[in-house]
Write a protein that binds this DNA or RNA. Structure first.
Lengths: 117, 117
DNA sequence: GGCGATACTCACCTAAAGGGAAGTATCACA
DNA sequence: TGTGATACTTCCCTTTAGGTGAGTATCGCC
């Protein structure tokens, strides 16, 4: 079975590699919001209220490291930091959309009501 | 922010609900293989050699509980058990395909060679 | 001189996912 | 009597993800 190493980590399938970029609880919700427009740290936090500071900060770092978003800090007081999706990040949007649609479908099958905003 | 309970678990987004069905390391690889044909436990194990008995058995149980696959046991010695994908399970296939394609794309960008079988 | 605003970091902790190795049941066959 | 084949289960352990709460830096304003 084909397998490969990347960045000191072993992967068995392209699925695993894909989820390295968009997996976990928070990466997709973050990217989804940044597709519309550049957002400040605090705006993201307000928009995803259940995320903790620790998770928001760490996930933004990881997305930045992978080249999915860029971070721009302004040397003002109080500080202002903006996050923008990159072209590479935009490539994940249709994937996220597919997964979201599937999620809605499964919710409908399970009889769950959810306001599609 | 809309959120909902299902089966004693709290979800914030349809993405989380979708990943409940196909998330984790092994569910997608298993479903992907069952899309072609019904397979026996041992055939799946041979096809996904890195999975442990514990994980294969537990993931098959979860997929069965969620109605993604069916399990048929034959009362013979040695035992024979077959797993078949359901219509509900088939709905996940295009999602998995999208994620796999995205994985291949990311691998190509990262300069990773991988035989596309 | 202390408060509020923003965007964090740090140390510690819990829970869930996943891995390893051994054990179980049944019957045929040598 | 004991070995092999299949499809598991069980126990115990490690790793990873995620959560909690406190602390930090800067400056303007009251």
């Amino acid at each position: 079975m084909p397998e490969f190493f990347f960045d000191h980590k072993l992967y068995y399938t392209p699925i695993e590699f894909a989820l390295e970029h968009i997996g976990g609880t928070w990466k997709m919700p973050i990217l989804w919001r940044l597709q519309q427009k550049t957002l400040r740290y605090g705006e993201l936090k307000k928009d995803i209220p259940h995320i903790t500071h620790k998770m928001l900060a760490s996930q933004l770092r990881e997305l930045e490291e992978k080249g999915m978003i860029t971070r721009e800090a302004f040397a003002v007081v109080p500080p202002r930091v903006e996050y923008t999706i990159t072209d590479k990040g935009r490539k994940a949007i249709p994937v996220i959309e597919t997964i979201m649609k599937y999620g809605y479908e499964m919710m409908k099958e399970a009889g769950i009501e959810y306001p599609k905003r």
